[in-house]
Simulated assay, not measured.
Amino acid sequence: MGHGGDVIAELTTDHREVEQIFGKIEALPPGDSRRKLYADQAIMELVRHSVAEESYLYPAVRKQLPDGDALADKELADHATAERTMKDLEGCDADDPRFDTLMMKLMAEIREHVADEEDNLFPRLRTACTPEMLGKLGDKVRTAKKTAPTRPHPSAPDTPPANKLLAPGVGLVDRLRDMMSGRGKES
C-alpha cells in the first residue's frame, strides 16, 4: 500500500502488485471461490490507487504539462469506466456467470490504463517535474492511500477539492465494512 520513493515509483509498484493479483486470478479455474477473494483484493488496491491519483497525480499533470487538462481528463475517464466495471464485479461471486466476463473486462481496462500511464504519462511527468516535486507527490499519494475508500463509488466526485474532503470519511466506512465482513482477507 505504501512503498516509498517518488510518485512514479509508488504508482508503478502499485501497478505491479495489481498485476500479480490478476495473475493469481488467471491461474485458478473458473468458479473457484479464491477468484472472488483475489478480485476483492484487486478492487481494494485499485480504488485506493485511483483515489490517490485523482487527488494528487492528475492535478499535477494539469499544472505541469502543456496538454495536462486533456491528459488528466482521459485518465479520469479511464478510471470512471473501470470503476463501473468494479462496481458490477463487486456484486458477483466467483460462480456467477458474469464474473469471468467482468473480470476479463476489468483486467483489460486496467492493463491498457497502466500501459498508457507508464509509457506516456509518467515519462512526460518525470521530464516536467523536479525530483523534489515528484518526491512530495509520492508522499501525498502514500498518505491518501491510507485513508482512501476500498470499494468503488462511481458517483463520488473524482476531482479536488470535493474528492479530498469526502474520501477519508468514505474510506473509514469502507474499511469498517471490510473488517466486519472479512472482505479481501484469506481465511
Rank of each mutant, 00 (worst) to 15 (best):
L125Y: 08
D73Q: 10
E53W: 03
V170M: 09
K164G: 06
E26L: 12
M180T: 10
A94C: 12
P160F: 02
P168A: 04
S33D: 12
D93T: 15
H49E: 01
L89H: 12
L137E: 07
A108P: 02
K164R: 15
R142H: 03
A128Q: 10
G31C: 11
E53G: 06
S50F: 07
K140A: 06
P131D: 13
S155D: 12
V51L: 08
P152N: 07
G169N: 04
A148P: 09
A39R: 12
T147P: 07
T101H: 04
R183A: 13
A82T: 14
V7Y: 04
R142S: 10
T150Y: 04
M104F: 08
M86P: 10
A60T: 04
L65N: 02
R34Q: 15
P152F: 01
R34I: 08
K105L: 15
D119I: 01
A72S: 14
D69G: 05
E75I: 01
P160D: 03
A70S: 12
V141F: 01
A82M: 15
N163C: 11
D88T: 15
E45L: 15
D96M: 11
R62C: 07
M44K: 12
T127S: 09
V47M: 12
R84I: 12
A27L: 06
L121S: 01
L106I: 14
G68A: 02
E112W: 01
E117W: 02
L176N: 05
D100W: 00
A167T: 02
P59G: 00
R34Y: 08
D139C: 02
K140N: 09
